[in-house]
Design a protein around this nucleic acid. Structure first.
Length: 423
RNA sequence: GGAGAGGUGGCAGAGUGGUAAUGCAGCAGCCUGCUAAGCUGUCAUCCUUUUGGAUGCCCGGGUUCGAAUCCCGGUCUCUCCGCCA
C-alpha cells in the first residue's frame, strides 16, 4: 500500500512510473488526495467540537463538586447538541478513511526506475543467461513420461487421493525431492540465512500484511470454518513474523529461510502448459526473506540474485534471468527478477524463482518499522525470493540429465541422495 | 469441547468513573578524564505545526456531562480439565 504523503510529494513521478505497468494513476491519485483533504478538514472540525465538549465536561465535574447542580444541568443541555454534531462528524471521518483505504488497496506498487514498460511477459528483459543447453537424443522424453517410465512420480495416485495437481513422489523421486530441499536449505544457511519452520495456514491479518488479501483471495485455499488460508508461499508466514514490529538498528540484517509446501488454487489455468510438474496445486519451495533498511535493500536484492545464480550453477542447469516488465510485475513488487530454467524436452523456459523488492509496500500494511539513528520511525523494505521452487527444478533435472538408460543425478546432490542415477 | 484468568507505550508494569503513574531501553544535550555513572529534556498516533487541540488502554457497540475503569457482543493469549499425535 502506498503512503498518502508520498503520493502527494511525488505525484507526477509516480504517475509516470505506474504508467509502465499500464496503470492509469492520475484520476485515482486526484481522488486519494481529495479524500485525504476531506479527512483532514473533518478531523480538525471534529477535534474542535470534542475540545469544547471536554471543556464543558470538566466544568460540570467542578460544579457537581461544588453542589451547583442547577447550573450543571443547564450546561448538560449544551453538551447534548455537541454530541450530535460530533457523532455526525466522526461517522463522516471514519467513512472517509475507509473510502481512502479501499482506494489505496487498488493501487499497485510503484515500479523501480529500471523496470521496462510493457504489457506482457513478452516484454520482459533478458539480462543474463548461463549454462549449456544439452543436445538430447531424438528419443528424449518430457519429464512426465520420464516420471512414469522410472516410476518416481505418480500423478494418477494424486488424482485419486485429492485431485489433479497433487502428485505423489515415490522411491528415488521422493528422495531426490528431499535431497533438493535439504541442499537448498544448507546453501541458504551457509549464506547466513536463519532457518525457520512456520505454520502452513495463515489468518486474515497475515494475508493482508503481505498483500495476498484482498486482491488475490481466489488464489488461496480457504477454510471457511476457521477462516484460515493455506499458504501460497512461505513468504506470507515468514514475513508476517515481523508484523507490527518496531525494529532497531541492531536488529539488521534480518535474513530468513524456510522450506514449506505451497498451495495454490490456480483457478482457470488448464491445458497443455500445465502438464506434469509445470503447474501444481501443491508444491515444495525453499524461500528467502530479507528485511532491510531502505538504504540497503537493493544491495540485498543483488545478493539474493547471486545466491540463486549459484544454486543453478551448482546444479549445472541452463537458465536465464529476466527483469520483469511493468505489465508482468506483481501487484506488490517494485522490482522483480525471474529465473527460468530451460526444459529441453519441452523446448521451453520454466520459471523456477522470482526475486523481488517490495520496498515499503508490504511494510506499510505490516506496520513494520524501525527506529533510525535519529530516533525517528521509518518503514523498512521487505524482499523475498524462491531458492528454489522444487517441481520445475526437478523437471529440469529429469529432462536435461536424461540419457537412454536413465537419469544422472547432479553431482552436488549425490551426497544428499545417496545414489547417482535413477534407472 | 468445559471452567477460570487476562490483553495498557519498544519492553516491563501501576491505575476500579473526573481524563494514562513509574522503571528499563532508545534519542538529544550537559557533566565527569578511564569499557561506566549522574543530571536535564525528549520518547504512542493524527490535525495544526507557533501557542494548542484531538485520539489512544485487544476489536465493535452501549450507559454517562465525563469510561482504561461499568454493561453487552466479538477476538486472541494463558492456566486447569476433557480429547488426542
Amino acid at each position: 500500500m502506498l503512503q498518502v504523503n508520498n503520493i502527494r510529494d511525488h505525484k507526477e513521478q509516480y504517475i509516470q512510473a505506474l504508467a509502465k505497468r499500464n496503470f492509469e494513476a492520475k484520476a485515482v491519485f486526484e481522488e486519494v488526495l481529495e479524500l485525504d483533504e476531506t479527512r483532514r478538514n473533518t478531523q480538525t472540525r471534529l477535534d474542535d467540537i470534542l475540545a469544547e465538549s471536554n471543556r464543558l465536561s470538566k466544568e460540570i465535574g467542578k460544579m457537581f463538586k461544588n453542589g451547583e447542580h442547577q447550573k450543571a444541568n443547564l450546561i448538560k443541555e449544551k453538551t447534548g447538541k455537541l454530541k450530535e454534531d460530533s457523532k455526525e462528524l466522526s461517522e463522516k471521518l471514519s467513512s472517509t478513511i475507509q473510502e481512502l483505504e479501499q482506494l489505496l488497496y487498488t493501487i499497485p506498487n510503484v515500479p523501480h526506475e529500471s523496470v521496462p514498460a510493457g504489457v506482457s511477459e513478452e516484454d520482459n528483459e533478458e539480462i543474463f543467461k548461463e549454462g549449456e543447453i544439452p543436445v538430447l537424443e531424438k528419443t528424449a522424453l518430457p519429464h512426465w513420461e520420464l516420471a512414469k517410465k522410472y516410476d518416481i512420480i505418480d500423478f494418477e495416485l494424486g488424482n485419486k487421493i485429492t485431485g489433479a495437481g497433487f502428485p505423489v513422489y515415490k522411491g528415488k523421486g521422493a528422495r531426490l525431492q528431499r535431497a533438493l530441499i535439504t541442499y537448498f536449505l544448507d546453501k541458504a544457511t551457509e549464506a547466513g540465512y536463519t532457518e525457520f519452520q512456520v505454520p502452513l495456514m495463515i489468518n486474515e491479518a497475515s494475508g493482508f500484511g503481505t498483500g495476498q488479501l484482498p486482491d488475490k483471495e481466489g488464489q488461496m485455499y480457504h477454510m471457511a470454518e476457521d477462516n484460515l488460508y493455506m499458504i501460497p508461499t512461505a513468504e506470507v508466514p515468514i514475513t508476517n513474523m515481523f508484523r507490527d514490529n518496531l525494529l532497531t538498528e541492531k536488529d539488521f540484517p534480518i535474513s530468513c529461510t524456510g522450506y514449506t509446501p505451497c498451495f495454490r488454487r490456480e483457478a482457470g489455468s488448464y491445458g497443455a502448459h500445465v502438464r506434469g510438474l509445470n503447474r501444481l496445486h501443491q508444491f515444495d519451495k525453499v524461500e528467502l526473506v530479507r528485511i532491510e533498511k531502505p538504504s540497503d535493500s537493493y544491495a540485498a536484492l543483488d545478493k539474493m540474485v547471486e545466491h540463486v545464480k549459484e544454486l543453478l550453477r551448482d546444479l549445472k542447469l541452463p537458465y536465464r534471468i529476466l527483469r520483469l516488465c511493468g505489465g508482468d510485475l506483481g501487484f506488490t513488487s517494485a522490482l522483480t527478477y525471474d529465473f527460468e530454467v530451460f526444459s529441453t524436452a519441452q523446448d521451453r523456459w520454466l520459471e523456477i524463482s522470482s526475486v523481488s523488492n517490495f520496498e515499503t509496500f508490504q511494510a506499510n500494511r505490516l506496520k513494520l518499522r524501525y527506529k533510525n539513528k535519529e530516533g525517528k520511525k521509518d518503514l523498512v523494505h521487505t524482499l523475498n525470493g524462491s531458492a528454489l521452487a522444487l517441481p520445475r527444478v526437478l523437471a529440469g533435472i529429469l529432462e536435461n540429465y536424461q540419457d537412454e538408460k536413465g537419469i544422472k543425478i547432479p553431482e552436488v546432490l549425490v551426497p544428499y541422495t545417496g545414489f547417482d542415477r535413477i534407472d
